[in-house]
Computed example of a mutant assay.
Amino acid sequence: MTHEGNVQRVSSRTRTSITGNVSCKTGSSNGIVRDLSEEGICFQLLFDIGAQTGQEVTIRSEELGFLTGIVRWTRGDRIGIKLKLSSNTAAQIASYFKFFR
């Protein structure tokens, strides 16, 4: 396992402050998308939802629409989500970068 400082990202990340909601089988919470890439999201939760690594989640926001993904990591009130890649997901992320950034 590599240390966080040595991690090489597949896609560059953009800092954001997009508000939204994350839901999984153990709960749901509003929060903020802290950073965004074509493949993933760092989401800061307002409430602990008991998200576990490997668990499927849905993300809803006005700017991004409806996305799905898998929890890759949890650290305090933040979770890392690897997006399920599809042409629809790619279009939604591209639209955000084009119109909202």
Results as ranks from 00 to 15, higher is better:
G76Y: 06
K84D: 07
G76A: 07
T14L: 14
K84M: 09
I81G: 04
I93P: 00
T58W: 01
G40M: 05
E39M: 10
I59H: 05
T19N: 11
T68K: 12
I41Y: 03
V7C: 08
F43D: 02
I49N: 09
Q52L: 14
C24V: 03
V7E: 15
V57A: 04
A91T: 08
R60K: 12
K25M: 14
T58A: 09
R13A: 09
F100V: 10
G65C: 03
F47C: 07
E38M: 15
W73D: 03
F66W: 06
Y96M: 05
I81C: 03
I81N: 08
A90S: 13
F97P: 09
S29M: 06
G20Y: 06
N88L: 15
E63C: 06
D77E: 11
S61D: 01
G65P: 06
N30A: 13
K98R: 14
R75M: 11
G40H: 02
F97I: 06
S28P: 00
F47A: 11
R72D: 09
T14M: 15
Y96W: 15
R75E: 14
A94I: 02
M1W: 05
F47P: 00
N6Y: 07
F97M: 13
F97N: 11
F99M: 02
T26V: 01
T68A: 13
G65I: 02
I18M: 07
S28H: 03
Q44T: 04
G65K: 02
S86H: 06
N88E: 14
V10Y: 10
R15M: 09
E62N: 11
I49A: 10
I32C: 05
F97R: 14
H3S: 12
R60I: 02
I59R: 01
T74V: 15
G50F: 04
F100I: 04
R78W: 00
I70W: 00
S37D: 01
I59Y: 09
T26Q: 13
L83S: 01
C42H: 13
G27R: 12
N21H: 10
S87P: 08
T68G: 14
G80Y: 03
V10S: 13
A90Q: 14
G27A: 07
T53D: 06
G40K: 00
I49P: 04
G76F: 04
D35A: 07
R13T: 05
E4C: 07
L36H: 03
F47S: 14
T14A: 12
I18Q: 10
I49M: 08
G31C: 04
G31Q: 01
T58G: 08
I81Y: 05
C42R: 15
I59C: 07
I18N: 07
L36V: 05
K25A: 15
G76D: 11
